[in-house]
């Protein structure tokens, strides 16, 4: 079965034929299945943002093919409406807020979908609830009066209200406090439960590793790695290029293994790590009860 996102041999060059020519994407092949969560990692200028703008029709493929929800993104007539299927939340989305009230801001997308006002209202309140804003207090305030973190929530709610099949987040955590981070993790978790597809860009491998088990790494326009976290951990030559701290749960498991305990290191989630540690604890207790 084809995935909900299919990218094949995609190339993209900015400012072709000028002194500022930059090859942003080189031969990218990537596929994401329905309900999957893909973490996209890469240093600055590696082409992450260019890649995701192909997914909602902002950039049409110059060479290669992009299919999103069965829609061919190279067809200008079809890709115009791709924003309804693939919702892209830009970096610092709070900078795009322009309406007079929070309600109108969140309702902007649904209204562009030409939905009846009653449905729009329903969606707005649902979206505001999802980002943890209590509707009665906030819906009619002007966005200017809110703090940066709150405005980020409003902007994300604006995209959630469109209810896209695929949600694409470009560095949603940048500059957020821990409450804001938890809110985003919450949204992602809910989408995973509902078997909805999500793509997230991040500068931090650690951050991606704690959320998802599917990672794609871009570097200077090339896809360096695409696969499971487990496989990535077995590739020290790739990891060595990106200095980062392992997530705490992996640090603990590795520490145990280093000290000579019999623990499985091939794990990819906090839950798995927890189970392994409890198993180890039980084994040790049994040893203590029957030392002979």
């Amino acid at each position: 079965m084809p995935g909900v996102i299919e990218i094949d041999h995609l190339f993209h060059t900015y400012a072709k034929g000028s002194p500022y020519e930059v090859e942003a994407l080189k031969d990218i092949a990537l596929s994401v299945d329905q309900g999957e969560f893909l973490g996209l990692f890469g240093p600055n200028g590696s082409g992450k943002s260019t890649l995701i703008q192909h997914l909602n029709g902002l950039i049409r493929p110059q060479k290669g093919s992009v299919t999103v929800c069965g829609i061919d993104a190279s067809n200008p007539k079809l890709s115009r409406d791709l924003w309804k299927n693939a919702g892209l939340v830009f970096q610092y989305p709070e900078h795009q807020i322009f309406q007079i009230s929070v309600y109108d801001e969140v309702a902007y997308g649904p209204r562009n979908l030409k939905l009846p006002e009653a449905t729009v209202k329903e969606r707005v309140y649902e979206a505001l609830q999802q980002v943890g804003l209590i509707q009665e207090n906030i819906a009619h305030l002007p966005p200017v009066t809110l703090s940066g973190g709150m405005r980020r929530r409003v902007a994300i709610a604006g995209m959630l209200a469109i209810q896209p099949e695929i949600l694409i987040l470009d560095e949603p955590m940048a500059g957020l406090d821990s409450a804001g981070r938890n809110m985003i993790l919450d949204i992602i978790k809910k989408r995973q439960e509902k078997h909805e597809t999500t793509v997230m860009i991040s500068h931090s491998l650690k951050e991606i590793m704690t959320i998802t088990d599917k990672i794609a790494i871009l570097d200077s326009g090339c896809l360096v790695f695409n696969g499971k976290v487990k496989d990535l951990l077995n590739k020290p030559e790739v990891l060595a290029q990106y200095p980062f701290d392992l997530p705490e749960y992996l640090q603990i498991v590795y520490e145990f293994a280093d000290k000579g305990f019999d623990i499985k290191t091939n794990i990819s989630s906090i839950r798995e790590a927890g189970e392994e540690i409890i198993k180890l604890q039980k084994e040790l207790e049994q040893l203590r009860i029957s030392p002979a």
Partner: peptide
């Protein structure tokens, strides 16, 4: 640059 980003962001929300 900023205008392009905001324009793209609004396009993503259905601005025509």
């Amino acid at each position: 640059e900023e205008a392009t980003i905001i324009k793209n962001a609004q396009k993503s929300r259905g601005s025509e």
